[in-house]
Amino acid sequence: MKKLMCLTIAALTVVACIQEPKDYVMFSGKITNQSSDSLVIRSNTDINFQKRITVAADGTFSDTLKVVTGSFYVYDGTERTSLYLKNGRDVHLTLDTKQFDETVVYTGSGADANNYLAKKALDQEALFKDETMFAMIKEDFAAKLETIESGFMKNLDGVSGLDTAFVASEKKGFDELKKYLVSYQEDKFFLNTVLGKGKNSPKFMAYENNAGGKTSLDDLKGKYVYIDVWATWCGPCIAEIPYLKEVEKTYHSKNIQFVSLSIDEPKDYDKWKSMIKEKELGGIQLLADKAWKSEFVKNYRINGIPRFILIDPKGNIITSDAPRPSDKKLKDMFNSLSI
């Protein structure tokens, strides 16, 4: 009887030691040179999921998240990095905001998938910085793309223990990236050849001028022309306005015209007029005749805004994709042209 009781107690002890799987993610870490007092976690698929995590003065943080397995972003100020989260895992993140992407390191359960994502982000950043690749002819670019795909598959296959759903999602994402790269290369090649330096610029004719009357590109010959293609609904466009004002002020008396060309739809006409007044926009404020369908916009292959163009006094293209006002390279370019 005594032996039976001991066995029963032992069995109960074993049962007591078996823990139920956690129905949440433990997310912790340390941020060096933190840029805010909190992190924000957002789902890549569920717009309603958002969690704010407090970061202590020493940069440490720790919290739990109940999630639906999938992709997320963690934001520190304006910077972000990818996360793959699944309930039951314990994910630890360290990074230094001074070199954000380069210092992202994950440890703990689920670290392999997230370290893979961090490396992928760096690889893709380097990819888009490789201007020589996008200047290739179509056949050479296709061969380059095969090499990139091979490297992607090697990196993905080299990570053990990945969920099948994660692997499938990554492969689907890369297929989408390939399609985008092909389109991006075609546009870049077109800009570097048909719209390359020294080519005659496509023209716009009789666009409405906020100051009154109509303005055509030919009216501006004799001066350099820096064109900002924008719209009132475009957040990144609005963010460039303070920098554009500063550049305009610096080169106010120089041999250059600053043109802000809105591609707002007719329904936003009053909004366009109001924003010019409210934000005290300078330069020449024009409204494209057919928004995205305007010939000038189509001829320059403008698929995203803001887009900046620099034209010389003779009406020839200097660059069909000029630096933004917030980029110090713009003033370097102006100075190199003795504007």
Rank of each mutant, 00 (worst) to 15 (best):
Y226E: 03
I41Q: 04
K249L: 08
F174M: 07
K245T: 05
Q50F: 07
Y251C: 08
I241W: 09
F49N: 10
K129L: 11
N303A: 11
Y207L: 08
N210F: 15
G196E: 04
G222R: 10
S160N: 14
D63N: 09
D187V: 14
R89Q: 15
I18M: 11
K120N: 12
W233G: 06
I47D: 13
D218G: 08
H92G: 09
E102P: 01
D332V: 14
A56H: 11
T45G: 00
Y269C: 00
M333D: 05
T164S: 15
V67W: 01
W272T: 06
S294N: 09
L7C: 14
G173L: 05
K279R: 15
S201V: 07
I302R: 01
K221P: 07
D37L: 05
E265T: 09
V15N: 09
I47V: 13
T94A: 10
G213I: 08
V159C: 02
S71A: 13
C237N: 01
Y224L: 03
K329D: 12
V55D: 00
E246W: 02
M275I: 05
M153A: 09
I302V: 13
G315I: 02
L286Y: 00
T107L: 01
M275L: 12
I256S: 06
E170Q: 15
T32G: 08
G88W: 02
C237T: 04
S28D: 07
E125T: 14
G88D: 06
G235N: 11
L281N: 00
I311C: 07
K138Y: 12
K331T: 15
I47A: 14
S201G: 06
V40S: 13
L12H: 04
G70W: 08
K2N: 09
E295D: 15
S150E: 12
Y207G: 00
K86C: 04
G173Q: 07
